[in-house]
Design a protein around this nucleic acid. Structure first.
Lengths: 228, 228
DNA sequence: ACATAAGTATTGTTCAACAATTCGACAAGA
DNA sequence: TCTTGTCGAATTGTTGAACAATACTTATGT
């Protein structure tokens, strides 16, 4: 029985999690991710506060949270705006991804086997979604692939950093008018990367990752600048 | 004169940066860094609000900011506490440092020459402080060495991540009762690392960094656990 | 057409109040 | 003695209203 009580320790994380401000932040984060609030759009305190039925003070706390996640931009005395990523921002995000995901690949020989199973699951999800023409879901699965890849580092902080980077990228994915053309080619490449790692061919995996990130970045910035 | 005006561009960053909440956060951040607020200590909204002459709402915004920087821990309905880093946290911080600083070293051949000058300056600062027995300042210079090292990556986001990591570490440095013994040996090793990079001997530099981080981490966790 | 000034809307900050939650103390019961 | 229930003080969570400060817009005068 003492043992059963000790087991509860594990569930403690689920306890604290609530507070109006955080729940408001969750809602807004989702809406931004799905593009309902477009980048550059201003979020009025009064309008949103009224819509969600929370006071301005509480809403401002939520804004602060999202501001620190770089999803909102706070301009003094002018309000909060959905973040607009510059081409330079996109380049920087990919710079960081190369560092963090590259480290994950290099660390893959020392990673726990369960982690690979989790990665394989995201590939399966992507393949299934692709078969059923759900290209938005393919994109989501691809994102989860890379999020899970980072867990090979075994570092909660790197996981959190990656989570934030991918949230930022979602701000930009909406400029791709053709989700299929953007997401489809990467499914096979993710699978290839996974199998290289499982085979212990680290150098090749590292190279595959580099190519992947180079291509993805190129596609994004091309769609981002007025086409030549 | 036109030139002088153009020079002002550089100071623009400091312009937007005001807002009572942010200034309050700046103050509290400094106090925490210098150990005036000890880890684990609770920060009362009423007491601190009264002391600084700001309202509870504004203070809470500042708390949120520092919470996101991981300097404060927010426990629902119980208040905010100065963060207490576990040994596991320290290990994770060093895990991330190995990734980010390692990438900086590997990228050093492609980095701008000015960056090396900035690094060399931090070493000079450390040497000067050591000569004058200012061991606290030696520690600060050492921290700046690594902060500057990361700029070799050329990524604002990695700079910011590093800034946050080092702020977290400052929470822990206070457990070292003998700052000289802790900081002194690392000055020479920083210099050695810098010179290896400048000579283009990347592999050796990488190795030196690994050793450095291993030793620093070991010293910290040893001081952190009740001695055997 | 252009600069200036007035007016409006929105954010920044404070204040006071009340609800919700935590925590310690103390009493009731086994 | 130990556990459990209850009370109450203290603190945080949230709200609503108010006013100041700032940005934006419109009107005004030259």
């Amino acid at each position: 029985m003492d043992n059963a009580v000790a087991a509860l320790e594990h569930d403690r994380g689920r306890l604290g999690r609530s507070s109006t401000a955080e729940r408001v932040a969750d809602i807004l984060r989702d809406r931004i991710a799905e593009g309902l609030f477009a980048p550059g759009q201003r979020l009025s305190e009064e309008a949103i506060g009224a819509a969600l039925g929370v006071s301005r003070n509480t809403l401002r706390e939520a804004f602060r949270l999202l501001g620190h996640e770089r999803l909102l931009e706070h301009r003094l005395n002018r309000g909060v705006f959905v973040r607009v990523l510059s081409a330079e921002d996109v380049a920087d995000v990919y710079r960081v991804r190369r560092v963090i995901e590259g480290a994950a690949v290099r660390n893959s020989p020392r990673a726990a086997p369960e982690a690979f199973a989790a990665i394989r699951e995201t590939v399966a999800d992507a393949l299934r979604a692709a078969r059923e023409d759900r290209w938005q879901d393919v994109g989501t699965a691809n994102i989860r692939f890379h999020q899970t890849l980072v867990t090979l580092n075994g570092s909660p902080r790197l996981d959190e950093t990656m989570r934030q980077l991918l949230a930022e990228l979602r701000l930009v994915f909406h400029v791709m008018e053709n989700p299929r053309a953007f997401h489809e080619p990467f499914v096979a490449r993710n699978l290839e990367l996974l199998e290289l790692m499982e085979a212990g061919r680290v150098a090749e995996a590292e190279r595959a990752l580099e190519d992947y990130l180079d291509d993805a970045e190129r596609l994004l910035v091309r769609a981002y600048t007025p086409h030549p």
